[in-house]
Amino acid sequence: MGIILEKEAKTVSEATISACEELGVSRSEVDVEILQESSRGVFGIGSRNAKVRVTVKNEKLSEKGLESKKALESILEHLVPTYSVGIRETNDRIRLDIKDTNDKGLLIGKRGEMIKSLEYIVGKISARACEDGREKRINIDIDGYKGRREDKISRLIKDTARKVRKIKKPISLDPMSASERRMAYIALKREGGVGYETKEEQDKKRIIITPHQSRG
């Protein structure tokens, strides 16, 4: 069981917000149970406050989880005027999600360069700071950007594969990072009538979709 707090206020959302503030967590980190809906009553007679019971989910965060959240928040404080950081932990991963910011583009960076840098630095800092939870990898996302990126890549693969089948000539894609290529290969497996090659140039790798099953 997690930490539980009951709060009363004029509306359900006000009560929830004040409970979250008191616990120092974001809305996504708690389960809310409505104990009593608010009621205005008639001419102010018989009006009732709303009552909620808030339970903190996943209250057992590892030391690394807490450290990584702290480190990310300290960096964001110097970067953007508003933000909040949600955290979820699984057996092998710590997921930090940056929300409530108007600077998504800045925090994502060109081709997700900034997310990667934040992930790397936060990972280094938190790994140094603690023993507990060391093996967990840090994952940072910004308002579900990575999920959307995956959709975009599978769409790109689908469209390009269709074009390759039509013109019967190979098409080479822009260089992608290892994680993006992983998504691309998964999408390519679903495509028939095309193969692919991976070409390396300096430290960049690009996928070339070929008309025939050359490999894979």
Binding site: I75, L79, L106, G109, E113, S117, I121, K124
Partner: peptide, 21 residues
């Protein structure tokens, strides 16, 4: 600096974003 300058590169990226802001 980090392995192959990876840490330095990440710090530079973050600094660059802060400056751009």
């Amino acid at each position: 600096i980090g392995k192959q300058g990876r840490t330095a590169k990440a710090i530079r990226t973050i600094l660059g974003a802060a400056a751009a802001k």
